[in-house]
Amino acid sequence: MKYSQRSQTMLSRTAESLFWLGRYLERAEATARVLDVHLHDLIGTTSMHQLRWANEIQALVGMDISETTFDELATILSLSKNHPSSISMCYELAWQNAKSARDTVSLELWESINVTYSRLRRTFVTDLGHSPHAFFAWIKDRSAMARGISDTTMNRDQAWFFLHIGRSLEQLDGTARLLRVKLVDPDGEDWVVALRCLGGHEAYIRAVQRPVDKAKAIEFLLTDTSFPKSILFLAESITDSLGELSRHIVDPPHKPTVPPSLARLVANLRYPRINELADQADSYLAEVEEALIDLGQTLDSSLFAPAPESITSHTQRLEVWI
């Protein structure tokens, strides 16, 4: 406001595109991590094990469970043009959203996404066969690069916060889904794998300084505010971003508000009433789910404001003249 006569105008559609850009970039990275972790642990395992992990991966990315091999699954999740969690698809959608918001994302961010996308388009199954690990590492690098570029080249105005909320919301969803899958898992020993799926094994060791066990891992993933993918960290980060947005959005009726369910989640995780958080994990996850739904609604209804014109149009039927 200091420099220009007009405050920065943010189209509702652009805000929505930035939000989804954040989500898809994050989802691509999450898929790459899950595949990479399981690929690494496959070496020297039994086929029973492999099948179980294939099922677990399906659950983690929200696929219907079916019998498949890890290789098949890895191919689909890397390069499929239909599956919504495949890396290729995520980048396609990220690219489309970036393009639609091209007057708002920084040139460097756009360029980085454009390059990743066009290289992915020239990537085929045979290429993947050579070195899937290198492919996943490349995706992680490209995602880290996109994140770094957006953080260093974009003003902390509405655009960045929408992007950031999209990213955080996707991560929150990812951590919650991981917990959900692992909780129902009868065999609770591979929490190390779970932590590594989020790139959090090292973080756990640093923060907890104890061997990994189920109860501590759950507590860590729910409440550790030093770990950037814990539920509490992300819920607070989203809360803060909404606060920042409402600082940028001057007009009172359009200021976004923090949904009560999100505020409750933060409070309950910050000040848990019982010591054994792990026993209550299910109810926390239910709260996360509620908060995610409410968040989506807040954004949809007050900020993204879908155009009524997206409803089918008709021409008024003409009168017949006699």
Binding site: T9, R13, L245, D251, H254, E309
Partner: peptide, 22 residues
């Protein structure tokens, strides 16, 4: 702003753009 048709609408002969601020 770079707008598409769906970002704009008319009401009583005025044109508006849908933004996060209304």
């Amino acid at each position: 702003p770079l707008v598409e048709g769906r970002d704009l609408f008319c009401r009583a002969n005025n044109v508006y753009v849908r933004t996060t601020e209304g």
